[in-house]
Computed example of a mutant assay.
Amino acid sequence: MAQRTRADALSRERIVEAAVALLDADGERGLTFRTLTERLATGPGAIYWHLANKGELLDAATDSVIADALTAEPGVGSPQDEIRAVALGLFEAIDRHPWLSTQLAVQLSRSPWGTVTPRIFESIGRRVSALGVPEATWFTATSALVHYIFGAAGQNAANAQVLRFGGTDRAEFLRAAVDAWEGLDPGEFPFLKSIAGQVREHDDREQFLTGIDLILTGITAQGRS
Rank of each mutant, 00 (worst) to 15 (best):
M1F: 08
M1K: 13
A2V: 05
Q3S: 04
R6M: 00
R6E: 00
A7G: 11
D8T: 08
A9Q: 11
E13P: 08
R14H: 14
R14V: 10
R14C: 09
A18M: 11
A21Y: 01
A21N: 09
L23N: 00
D24T: 12
A25C: 10
G30R: 02
L31Y: 04
T32Y: 03
T32R: 04
T32H: 02
F33R: 11
R34A: 15
R34L: 14
T35Q: 15
T37F: 01
E38F: 10
E38D: 15
R39S: 15
L40G: 00
A41E: 15
A41N: 13
T42N: 00
T42C: 05
G43K: 08
G43H: 05
P44E: 12
P44T: 03
G45V: 01
I47N: 00
Y48K: 04
Y48E: 01
H50Q: 09
A52Q: 11
K54P: 03
G55P: 03
L57M: 06
A60I: 01
A61H: 04
T62S: 09
D63W: 01
D63A: 04
A67H: 12
D68R: 15
A69V: 14
L70F: 10
E73I: 09
P74G: 04
P74I: 05
S78C: 04
A87V: 14
L90F: 11
I94Y: 07
I94E: 08
P98H: 07
P98M: 10
W99F: 05
W99S: 01
L100Q: 03
L100K: 06
S101D: 13
T102W: 05
Q103P: 02
Q103N: 07
A105G: 10
A105T: 09
S109K: 08
P112R: 00
G114W: 02
T115Y: 04
T117C: 00
R119S: 14
F121E: 15
F121K: 14
F121W: 11
F121S: 14
I124T: 08
I124R: 07
R126W: 06
R127M: 03
V128W: 02
S129D: 13
S129Y: 03
S129K: 11
A130G: 04
G132Y: 06
G132T: 13
V133R: 01
V133D: 03
P134Y: 07
P134G: 02
A136H: 08
A136Y: 04
T137A: 14
F139K: 11
A141S: 15
T142S: 03
S143N: 11
V146G: 00
F150L: 13
A152Q: 15
A153N: 09
G154A: 05
G154S: 02
Q155G: 12
N156H: 12
N156F: 04
A157F: 06
A158I: 03
A160E: 07
Q161L: 06
Q161V: 04
R164I: 05
T168R: 15
D169F: 05
V178E: 08
D179V: 12
E182G: 10
P190G: 06
L192S: 12
K193S: 12
S194P: 02
S194T: 10
I195R: 13
I195N: 03
I195S: 07
A196Y: 08
G197W: 09
G197C: 06
V199E: 13
V199T: 13
D203C: 08
D203K: 12
D204F: 02
D204T: 05
T210W: 10
T210K: 15
T210I: 11
I215Y: 07
I215C: 07
I215K: 04
G218E: 15
I219N: 03
A221N: 13
G223V: 03
G223T: 08
